[in-house]
Structures are given as C-alpha cells and as structure tokens.
Design a protein around this nucleic acid. Structure first.
Lengths: 174, 174
DNA sequence: CCCATTATTGCAAATTATTTGCAATTAGTG
DNA sequence: CACTAATTGCAAATAATTTGCAATAATGGG
C-alpha cells in the first residue's frame, strides 16, 4: 500500500473524506524533496488544477500536521512563514541544517540527541516528547565558493549596524 | 560598566543615538526573566511611558537582534509570533525547553551539542555558525500533576482528527 | 550653550501569512 | 440514486510585523 492510500485510510478512520483536492495536495507533497511553504505547495499543485484554493491547501496541511504526516519548521532570518516537511512520516526523528547562503536544507539523523535529552531530564526532571534541532551555517559547496572568491557580498545575515537593516529600514533614506 | 551602557556604547560606535525610548526598552528587557513577545515588551515598557509606540519597540528589538543582544525564538504550536530572548548576550549558547502545559521555558546549556555539530560536518562538510535546539515536553511540576490527577483535559496539543482542530476549525459547525 | 544636522519617533496605513464564515458542492452511505 | 455531513471556494477577517512620512530630539561643532 502506498503512502497516499495509507494516509487516506487514516483519514477515513476518523470520518474524513478523500477528495480530489486532498489527493492532489498529497501527490504534490510526495514529489517534494524540499521544505516548501504553503504558497509554494499551492503553486505546484495548481499547475494541475488551476481552481484549487489556497485555503484548501492550508486546511489540508493543518490536517496532515495533526496526523503527523507533515512536520512544520520555522527558519531564522526568513519572513515569518511556516515551511512544511513531507519527510516526517518516513523518518520521524530527523533534524535540519540550513545554509545561510543558498538556503539548501540538509536533513540528518541525530541519535546522540537522546543523550542530550537524558542529560536534561537528569538535571531538570520532566519528560521530553519532541525536539527540534536546527543548524545554521554554510554548506560544503558555499563554503568552497567563499574560500575561493572571498566573502560574498550578498550575505543576508551581515550585521550592518542599528539604523540600517538589510531589508527593513527605519524609514529614512540613506 | 553595566549592560545598558555597554549596549549604548556599541550603538554610538555605529552612528546610532541613545534615546529615552531605547533606554526604556533596554531597562525593560534587563528585568525580563522570561521570553516575551514584542507586544508584551511594549505593554511592560508602556507602564512607565504611556506614549511609547509599538513600532519603536519592534525597531529597537530588530536593532538589538542585529547587535546580538537579544535572540529570537519561535515555538511550535504558538501563534506565528516571535519571542525575544534577553539572555543571549549573557550566555551566548543556551537552548530551550518548553513545557507543553504551562508554557514555562527552561534555558539550559548543551556542551554536548559540539559533538553533534562535529558529527554533522564530518558527514556533510560545510561549517556550522549557530544552532537552535528546542525540547518540548512536560516540566517536572506538570508531570507530577498529570501523574496525580491523570491527563489534563486542556492539553493544547491533543490530536483530535482531521476535520476538527482545537483552534482553527474547517468552517463547519460541529 | 545654542544650532544645525540627521537619526529616531509616533502615527497611520500597508504587507504578509494565515484563518474563518458561509453558501454551494461533493464524497460516502444506505 | 438520494441523503447527509464533510469539504470546497470565495471573500473577508485576523494578527504580527513593517514602512512612509512629517514632526521631534540627540549629538557634534561652533
């Protein structure tokens, strides 16, 4: 039984219905190798069904999130939007590296994290149900480029001082 | 030299000016033991200067963020808003545990994370410049309560099925 | 110590991501 | 095939955050 049928089954079990739109969104997700935003998923799915609506995409994504079929991530330095991670059901515990220059995301397992969790509980008590670990840095290929050509001028995280932020200025012409 | 003077100095160094509002916001931040939202900082600061404006709070916070004086965090399951962390300059590398029931945040150091970073680089190359680690679970005191009284009914993360999300419904009366 | 320069503020309006009410549609059931 | 309730599309509502602009205020120089 393939992934979509599996999801459909879980859906039925709770009184849900498998619709054309939901199938389309599931198929779109199945083809993703990245971490798209709701808008991106909408655009990709829309190529096959132009009258698909963005609300439907959001509703479907929230539903999949509740089902644990997709995960959500927020990355620093981005517009305050959510990215969806179609890979959670395949590899429940994976984490993310994000390249500050090319924005590539690398998913990696971190079994050692269990030790960190245990450490935490030993000190503070309680229980840990889930964990989110994100590394930020340069991926190998961007690192090479920087080493070859020197620091790239469009570095989005460059600190420019208090009154001149890269994207959001204080409202004065510079 | 205290923290505020230090920040002020860095500000001057880049052509910035220390204003009443900025000092007020800095003082407010210095008293925080939690991770407030911009709105919360605004409300607290406003008690001493009622005509302070929310935009000013945002602008000041972004400026402090660029300076590395405050950090920002987004927690799962919250409205898509940012929380600000006044503790970053004091302890640059600390991480967060968030209790799913009482929302308490515990900050903890994780020296072992260095091993994880090294692990990653060994496998994938590149460099790691920063890391964000968040644990979600129950804090010791909520765990006790749950063990004593049974699962709490208001569990905000409870999975309720596809068509009935806790907060955002699909638009149908249930 | 006052003035000029220019960073900063307050305000209101704009943006952006996301959610929601509702009438029309449609999947699944008998 | 008809019925019922889940789902959709649409448009409008929220909510967090940013921005343009005129007015204000901090600093450096006379």
């Amino acid at each position: 039984m393939d992934w979509i049928t599996q999801v459909a089954e879980r859906l039925r079990a709770t009184g849900g219905r498998m619709t054309t739109q939901r199938r389309l969104i599931l198929e779109t997700l199945a083809q993703c190798t990245d971490h798209p935003t709701a808008e991106e998923i909408y655009q990709r799915a829309r190529q096959r069904a132009p009258d698909l609506n963005l609300s439907t995409v959001y509703r479907t994504l929230r539903w999949l999130e509740d089902l644990g079929v997709v995960g959500t991530q927020r990355f620093e330095g981005e517009r305050p939007q959510e990215r969806f991670d179609p890979a959670v059901s395949a590899q429940p515990e994976h984490h993310h590296f994000r390249c500050r220059l090319c924005n590539t995301i690398i998913e990696f397992p971190a079994p050692l994290l269990e030790v960190l969790k245990q450490d935490f509980i030993t000190h503070y008590g309680g229980t840990i149900e889930s964990a989110s670990l994100i590394f930020y840095g340069l991926c190998e290929s961007c690192l090479q480029k920087v080493e070859t050509y020197g620091p790239l001028s469009f570095n989005p995280n460059a600190i420019t001082g208090p009154h001149e932020r890269p994207s959001h200025s204080t409202g004065r012409a510079s």
